[in-house]
Simulated scan of single mutants.
Amino acid sequence: MTKIYDINVTQIDGQVKTLKDYEDKYMVIVNTASKCGLVGQLEGLEEIYKEFKDKNVAVLGFPSNQFLNQEPLDSEGIEAFCQMNYNVTFPLFEKIKVNGRDAHPLYKYLIENTDNKKIKWNFTKFIVTPHEEKIISFAPKTSPETVKKELYALIDSKIGL
């Protein structure tokens, strides 16, 4: 059976890798779009990344143009936009499809392993716990602050606080 860590992803710079590097981490996976009304969430996602990166948490951004063409930029443009406007330093990946026959295998996997039937909009968020013990999904309008609270609860329960 395929595990999430076996799935190939392409970094924004074009390098292909698997998610194996994140097997011991909490992954916050989000589909992004620069022209979406929810784009301000990038700021909160960056805050999560900065606050938790030393606590085995990785935020991973997967741009998608599947919703009303809200991500028209190419990889270079996406990276520049995210850095200039939101100081994003968390890893970004190449633009993908998140729904349908051509959906990226990562998103097919996330949909199959949660209660989601499909990704409803940009900025749908997932937390994948280390070694994939649990996958939690969050609606697009769920704030990064709510995701942060869930991360605190998950991490604290693991270390017995």
Rank of each mutant, 00 (worst) to 15 (best):
M27A: 07
P91C: 11
P140A: 14
L38Y: 06
G160C: 03
V16F: 00
S137F: 03
F52N: 12
I127A: 08
A103C: 07
I96E: 03
F81H: 08
K148C: 05
G44D: 09
L92G: 08
E133S: 15
Y22M: 05
L161Q: 13
N31I: 06
N8H: 03
V30N: 06
I119V: 15
S64R: 02
K117N: 12
G61N: 10
K120R: 02
H131R: 04
F67D: 06
E132Q: 15
M84G: 04
Q66G: 14
Y86G: 08
P140D: 08
Y22D: 13
L110I: 07
I155T: 07
I48C: 07
V28W: 00
V39E: 08
E150I: 10
S143P: 07
D156M: 00
E23H: 01
Y152L: 12
M27N: 06
S64Y: 02
I12L: 09
K117C: 03
D13W: 00
K117P: 03
N87E: 09
K53G: 09
D74Y: 03
Y5P: 13
F81A: 12
K35A: 15
Q83K: 14
K25T: 15
G61V: 13
K117F: 03
G100F: 08
G14N: 10
F123N: 06
G61P: 14
D156E: 08
I4K: 03
E76H: 01
L161P: 12
T146P: 01
G40A: 12
K55T: 12
K95A: 15
Y152A: 12
T129W: 00
A139I: 08
K95I: 13
L154C: 13
E133V: 15
T146S: 08
K108C: 05
T2M: 05
N85H: 12
L60N: 04
